[in-house]
Design a binder for these strands. Structure first.
Length: 584
RNA sequence: GGCCCCGUAGCUCAGUCGGAUAGAGCGACAGAUUCCUAAUCUGUAGGUCGCAGGUUCGAAUCCUGCCGGGGUCACCA
C-alpha cells in the first residue's frame, strides 16, 4: 500500500474530527493537504503541510493549528513521535512495526508490490514508435519505443486499462517514394542495371530483399508498365515488408504492441470525410489563405486558398490546413481521423510518444482533439529528445536516408536489449540523451544498468549462499515473512526498509506525471542504499546478512534482502528488463 | 522572427501537482584497505538553481520579460 496516502487519510480524518468537535470550521477544503517524506531525513518519517494549507481558511495561525492537530496525532498507536517545525510542518515518526509490516507486505506480494487501483480501470491509449514504414528502426526510434512501452507498463501497474498502439503512416507521398525505390530494386533483382539510386529515393540496401522477393513472386509482370499500374501493388507489398521489418525490430527490443492502425485503411474507410463533416457541422472549417510564417517566408511561398480548421479557437497559433492545394488531404487531416477513431474506440485519455522533430505539431493536434471530442478527450504528447549515439565519447553518425546508418538491431546485438531499454529511461524524455556504447557496458557505479542489476544479482547471490550457510532457513518468500523482523534494528536496515516503502508512492507519482524515468532513478537510489548496507558488513561483521551463529537474525535479514530483490525486479519489470540472477 | 524543449557543483544529471539547511554519481582533495557474500570503502571541499522582475506565509519549481543552447516553422510524414 501507499503509506503516504494511508497517513494522509489519517490526517484528514483527524481534521474532520476536529471540525466535528468545533475546533475547525466544517467543510474545509483538504485537497491541498499533503503527506510526504520530508526532504530532510532527520525531520522524521512523514511530514504534512496540513496546518499551513488550512491556516488561512480556518482563520488560525499555522503553528496553533499544527499544535492542535499534532496533539491528536500523538495518540495514534502507529505514531511514536510528533513535532511541529518550521512555519507549521508536522513531522511524524512511525513505530518500527509499521516498517516491518512493509517487509511482510512485499514478501507476500512479490513483484506485484506497488500495484494499485489509482487508474480505476480507466482506458488509456498509448501510441508510440509509429515510425514511417520506410526502413529499419534506428536508435532514435528506440527511445520512443522504450519510453512508450515503459509508460504503458507503468500505467497498467497502477490500475489503468492500457492499450499499446502503433499508427502506420502508410498513406501519402513518402510511401509512394518508398514504392518507387523498391520498384528499382525489383528491376535490379530481375537483372537490370539500375546504377546509382536517384536523389530523393531510399538508397538503403534493405530494399534489395524486397525487390528480390517481389521478383520471385511476380516475375516480370510489372516491368515496362506505367507507374499507375504497378504502384499500388508494389507499395502495398513494400509497406508489408517494411512493417515486418519494423515488427521484427520491435520484437528484438522486446516491445509488443496491441494494435496496429493503418492510416490508409482509415482514410479509405472515409474517416477523414467524417472529420470534415463533424468540424463543418460545428462551423470550424473555412476556405482561406494562410499568412506566410512570421519573420521567415519560404522562398517558394505563394498565397493559396485551402480548406482550413479553426485551430486558433483551441489554443493553436494559426489555423491549420486540412487539404493541400491540389485538393488531397493533409497528413493532419488523417491524424485527426485517427484520433477521433481512438476516442470512439473508448479512450478518453490518449498519450502519444513522439520524436523531437514533431514538437511543432502538438498544438494543432491537441486543438483538433479538443474540437472533435468537445473537450471530453484528453491528449498528452510526450516528446523524446534526440539520442546521441556515441562510442567512447565519439559521436556515431546515424541517418535514415544516407544508407550508412546504425540500426537499432546492430546496437541491440552489441549491448543487448536490456541495456538499451534501461539506458533509454535514464533521462527525462524531454532532455537529450547520450548513449555511449562503451560506457553502458562498463561495470561501475556510474553505469546505472550495471549498478541496479548488480543489486538484484547480489541479493540473489546472498539467498543462494544462505542455502548452504544457514540451511535451516526456508528461503520461500512467504516463509521469510514469518521471520522475527524486530531483529532489524540497524539504522541502515531501517532506512532501507523505509526506502522500499516509498515504492508504491513513487510508482503512482511517476504514472500520474507520465514520467517513467523516475523509476530508473528510484532503482538506482535503492541499489545504492542496498550496496551501502552490504558494505557496512565489511567493516562490521555483525552487520553481514548471513550469520550462521544467529539464525533468527539471518532470517530477518534475508527477508529484507528478498524484499529488495522483489522491488528491484518489480521496477525492472515495468521497464521490460530481465533482472539477472548473477553477473559474469 | 514565431512556437516548443533545455539552462541546477569542474563534468553528467536528479529534484515529488510550490515547502524546511537544493541532492547523487564522476572528477578533485584527504584518509582506510586483500577483510569477505561478488568487481573497494569512508570523509572533505565544491552552488547568487542562466539574468531581472512578479505572485505567495514560502519559488530551482508558477507568471512576465530578457540572455544562451537545441529543435521546428504554409501543402512533408
Amino acid at each position: 500500500m501507499n503509506l503516504f496516502k494511508y497517513f494522509r487519510d489519517v490526517v484528514v480524518d483527524e481534521l474532520e474530527q476536529m471540525a466535528a468537535a468545533g475546533g475547525l470550521p466544517s467543510r474545509l477544503d483538504t485537497s491541498r493537504v499533503a503527506v510526504e517524506p520530508p526532504r530532510e531525513r532527520t525531520h522524521g518519517d512523514l511530514s504534512t503541510n496540513a496546518a499551513m494549507v488550512l491556516a488561512k481558511p480556518a482563520g488560525m495561525k499555522p503553528r496553533d493549528l499544527a499544535a492542535a492537530l499534532a496533539a491528536r496525532l500523538e495518540k495514534n498507536a502507529e505514531v511514536t513521535g510528533v513535532e511541529v517545525a518550521g512555519p507549521g510542518f508536522i513531522n511524524l515518526r512511525l513505530a518500527p512495526a509499521v516498517w516491518y509490516a512493509r517487509v511482510d507486505e512485499i514478501l507476500r506480494a512479490g513483484t506485484a508490490y506497488g500495484d494499485s487501483d489509482l487508474g480505476q480501470g480507466l482506458a488509456v491509449n498509448v501510441e508510440y514508435v509509429s515510425a514511417n514504414p520506410t526502413g529499419p528502426l534506428t536508435v532514435g526510434h528506440a527511445r520512443g519505443a522504450v519510453v512508450g512501452d515503459a509508460l504503458a507498463a507503468l500505467l497498467a501497474k497502477v490500475g489503468f486499462k492500457v492499450t499499446k498502439e502503433y499508427y502506420i503512416n502508410d498513406a501519402g507521398g513518402q510511401v509512394d517514394t518508398l514504392a518507387r525505390s523498391a520498384y528499382l530494386r525489383y528491376r535490379e533483382a530481375l537483372g537490370e542495371e539500375i546504377g546509382e539510386i536517384p536523389e530523393g529515393l531510399y538508397p538503403g540496401d534493405y530494399l534489395k530483399d524486397v525487390g528480390a522477393a517481389l521478383a520471385a513472386r511476380d516475375g516480370d509482370r510489372w516491368v515496362g508498365e506505367a507507374e499507375a499500374v504497378w504502384l499500388p501493388e508494389v507499395r502495398r507489398f513494400t509497406i508489408d515488408a517494411m512493417m515486418d521489418l519494423v515488427r521484427a525490430d520491435l520484437e528484438f527490443l522486446g516491445v509488443h504492441q496491441d494494435v496496429f492502425s493503418s492510416e490508409r485503411a482509415l482514410v479509405e474507410a472515409g474517416g477523414v470525410e467524417e472529420v470534415q463533416r463533424t468540424l463543418e457541422g460545428r462551423g470550424l472549417l473555412y476556405t482561406g489563405v494562410l499568412e506566410p510564417p512570421k519573420g521567415k517566408t519560404p522562398e517558394d511561398w505563394e498565397p493559396r486558398p485551402q480548406l482550413l480548421f479553426k485551430a486558433t479557437l483551441f489554443g493553436d497559433d494559426i489555423d491549420r490546413a486540412l487539404k493541400k492545394s491540389d485538393g488531397s488531404w493533409t497528413y493532419f487531416a488523417g491524424d485527426l481521423a485517427y484520433h477521433l477513431d481512438k476516442f470512439r474506440r473508448g479512450f478518453p485519455l490518449m498519450i502519444n510518444v513522439w520524436g523531437a522533430d514533431h514538437g511543432g505539431y502538438i498544438k494543432r493536434l491537441t486543438a483538433g482533439v479538443k474540437a472533435l471530442t468537445e473537450g471530453r478527450g484528453e491528449l498528452d504528447v510526450k516528446i523524446c529528445q534526440l539520442v546521441n549515439l556515441k562510442r567512447g565519447g565519439e559521436l556515431v553518425k546515424m541517418s535514415k536516408r544516407s544508407g550508412a546508418f546504425v540500426t537499432l538491431r546492430e546496437v541491440i546485438e552489441e549491448v543487448g536489449k536490456d541495456v538499451v531499454r534501461f539506458i533509454m529511461l535514464t533521462r527525462k524524455n524531454d532532455a537529450a540523451l547520450d548513449f555511449d556504447l562503451v560506457e553502458v557496458t562498463e561495470q561501475s557505479r556510474d553505469n546505472p544498468v550495471f549498478y541496479v542489476q548488480y543489486c538484484h544479482a547480489r541479493c540473489r547471490s546472498i539467498l543462494r549462499h544462505a542455502a548452504t550457510e544457514t540451511p535451516g532457513i526456508s528461503l520461500d518468500a512467504v516463509a521469510l515473512a514469518g521471520a522475527d523482523l524486530n531483529r532489524l534494528t540497524d539504522s541502515g536496515e531501517l532506512d532501507l526498509i523505509k526506502f522500499l516503502a516509498e515504492w508504491p508512492r513513487l510508482l503512482e507519482s511517476a504514472a500520474e506525471a507520465h514520467e517513467p524515468h523516475r523509476v530508473a532513478f528510484y532503482l538506482y537510489d535503492l541499489a545504492a542504499a542496498f550496496h551501502g548496507q552490504w558494505n557496512k558488513g565489511n567493516d562490521n561483521a555483525d552487520l553481514r546478512f548471513l550469520l550462521p551463529d544467529d539464525v533468527g537474525l539471518t532470517a530477518a535479514r534475508l527477508a529484507m534482502v528478498q524484499a529488495v530483490a522483489f522491488v528491484i525486479a518489480s521496477g525492472l519489470e515495468v521497464f521490460g528488463v530481465t533482472p539477472v540472477e548473477e553477473l559474469r
